[in-house]
Design a protein around this nucleic acid. Sequence first.
DNA 1: AATGAATGAGAGTTCATTCAT
DNA 2: GATGAATGAACTCTCATTCAT
Lengths: 232, 232, 232, 232
Amino acid sequence: MQGRGNPISREETNTKKSEERRSELLGIALELFAKFGYHNTKISDIVKQAGVAQGTFYWHFKSKEAIALEIIASGRAEIAKVIGQGYRSHSGTVEDMVTASELLLTSLFRFAGSNRYFMELLYAGAGNDEVIRSAVNETRNEMERAFRRNIERAVELQMLPANIDSSLRAMLLVSLIEGVISRWLFGPRETESELSRKTAEELAAETARFEFFGLLGTTKNTANEVKKGSSK
Amino acid sequence: MQGRGNPISREETNTKKSEERRSELLGIALELFAKFGYHNTKISDIVKQAGVAQGTFYWHFKSKEAIALEIIASGRAEIAKVIGQGYRSHSGTVEDMVTASELLLTSLFRFAGSNRYFMELLYAGAGNDEVIRSAVNETRNEMERAFRRNIERAVELQMLPANIDSSLRAMLLVSLIEGVISRWLFGPRETESELSRKTAEELAAETARFEFFGLLGTTKNTANEVKKGSSK
Amino acid sequence: MQGRGNPISREETNTKKSEERRSELLGIALELFAKFGYHNTKISDIVKQAGVAQGTFYWHFKSKEAIALEIIASGRAEIAKVIGQGYRSHSGTVEDMVTASELLLTSLFRFAGSNRYFMELLYAGAGNDEVIRSAVNETRNEMERAFRRNIERAVELQMLPANIDSSLRAMLLVSLIEGVISRWLFGPRETESELSRKTAEELAAETARFEFFGLLGTTKNTANEVKKGSSK
Amino acid sequence: MQGRGNPISREETNTKKSEERRSELLGIALELFAKFGYHNTKISDIVKQAGVAQGTFYWHFKSKEAIALEIIASGRAEIAKVIGQGYRSHSGTVEDMVTASELLLTSLFRFAGSNRYFMELLYAGAGNDEVIRSAVNETRNEMERAFRRNIERAVELQMLPANIDSSLRAMLLVSLIEGVISRWLFGPRETESELSRKTAEELAAETARFEFFGLLGTTKNTANEVKKGSSK
DNA sequence: AATGAATGAGAGTTCATTCAT
DNA sequence: GATGAATGAACTCTCATTCAT
């Protein structure tokens, strides 16, 4: 066994290396797109950071647009998975809902926290290119649809009033989430309140409370009273 | 008089025309920046639409960046005026608050509706240019600050619980508003729910209700009950 | 009259200068396309020779392809005019025909002689670009059609046998002409026979004789006898 | 033998395969050069069609230019063989000459018909590369020289008038032939007259008749009369 | 105030060729 | 013999800005 070259190994090595280079370029591109925007990122910047020649980029990707679309598509798939988990299998109390929502938001914010470049690309760096923009929008739409389905499911399970406009609510909810994520990650446009120091969990809790009780329902206390009120 | 035009009136006319040309260029630039993004709008596009030569642009404006900054600055002033009106002079019931909020949002949405290009520039078209982006962000921050002041004032007037994190709430509130405006005006990324057909008033009502009562407080009914509940 | 600036003159001057630059670029491009081929001619070569910046080219022309098409189109118009003159208004003897053909060929060869770059573009430099190639082919087809019409007209006037295949004959004739022109101008692939020293008139005479009498009808003598023979 | 393949036979096999691969690449390159032109054919196109890697090409050929030159050289040898057969050993009548010419042209057109890619490379696809172009020209010159020798031989044998300019006649004749071949094979730029449906034999007959009798000598009848006329 | 031609740095992309394995 | 990843020079085209008139 010792010393026999495995004929497959070279191929594997090559393949591995090629794929590594590919991912490396993908990662660098994502970072730069997010930090500086799609248009401000030059292929030359990407390859410089990767330490390869300009032509190498074009061995691995068809074009600048193609690499951006690939980045978006793969992020889109991951994010869809996270949100899909919020789909309820059975009914519960309002408290259950808040908890569930908090859980979902926690996953989502965690995902956002460990994919901040992708989120930035989604919420800030899309910029100009028509094709890129629509891929980004499609991703955001998909997110909104997923939340709408979750809301509709909650109505089905009679956890939310039947006369709710689920599209509108999904829109409001996603607005909330998008705003929170962008300010949390690539905001501190305002440094006060130290938003960036909050954890995903804390943010999820705050957001979920606002989601269910609005400006008024700040405290656990109030939350309880509201619950009673709405079930009267 | 021998046929010579009055030199003063002509000058006046010229001055008038020059200012008109300036505003015309500002208007066109705003429209194109909003529609196609800052980077995708070329000086040549602007002057073509204005029917003047390329050089004329540079007589009126120092640079492409300069015209964008001017556009943003003037919009910023106007929007600040609108939001400042939400500052309360005296206390009131929760119902008062909801009504007041609805009023403020109505003005804001109305403003957005009749300045949709500016709003689009603010929420979508800024693109990548560092200087532009920070001017846009400054404007958005100013809006957020104004809302925070309003919230703090409500706490002062004991209309909202004292233990509230006003920065965080302002952030959530502005997220809501920004999301609603962008989807209303240059969304419907999803056509369902016919968001774009809603009036500023309707949107303001829905948003205010969510603002105060969250997902649970959908109906007037519920709102009333919540009110009772929270004041119990 | 002295010293009054003519308000139109500046405009005219500008226009004139702009058009001059345009033609200059057209001329240089034609020369280089012909000498080195379309693909081997770089925009940088053209502007270098014109002593202007690269961008200037793009002020005057949309693209490299566009300038080539413009060159071809204008040459095509001129050449069509020349050939169209060969259309007969009335009948005549075989001798008349030979003379007329000689005249037409003389004009054509003269045109070719003073537009050698264009002819080279047509018969040698087209090279690769699909669009260019088809513009060139269209021009050559037009030439062939013009000759076919001339032949058909001669049949109509009963100067040529009615059972002739005019398309085929036009093809043979144009083959002849194209071959002669290319060898005369950018041939001497073989220096013997000093083809390049011949005048347009001499070539026209030789070609016309071959056209009517083939390899056998070389001398004026033979021509006369053939005439008798064919009219017997 | 313990399962080991015969090392010699394997080598042979490999050698065979290597040569096969070489020819395969040559064939594909010829096809693509002819169809799309030298410049428009990329090494990557060739290897893709052959199903081998890019590097493999460079094991078999020094460069893109080298493969083109090799293609041209081998075609050149074959075509020279065909034309050389037209060299007459003894004298004959005009009718003999026409028949002989027809025969030669028939072989030539047959060759062209079964080597259409090579002919296209020769007459259309050479493009711009200096080295390629001169190799192509050398081939065409060789063809012209062969025809000139044939004509000079006919003069020697007193089948053609002594005062003929054989270079010029060869040029005219080759122009004819080249024009016919290109239009027949990769023409029909004009579809009328259905040139492409003609057989090599038919084309040879028509061309030979034009070669000897020009525009006037269309029919067998006329041909006869011309013959009488010229021999009177 | 206005014109429009000119500028030139720099972008994305192509492709023949090389090279380690 | 063969692979496929890597190279890098060269190309066409863009566009904000300048400038002579």
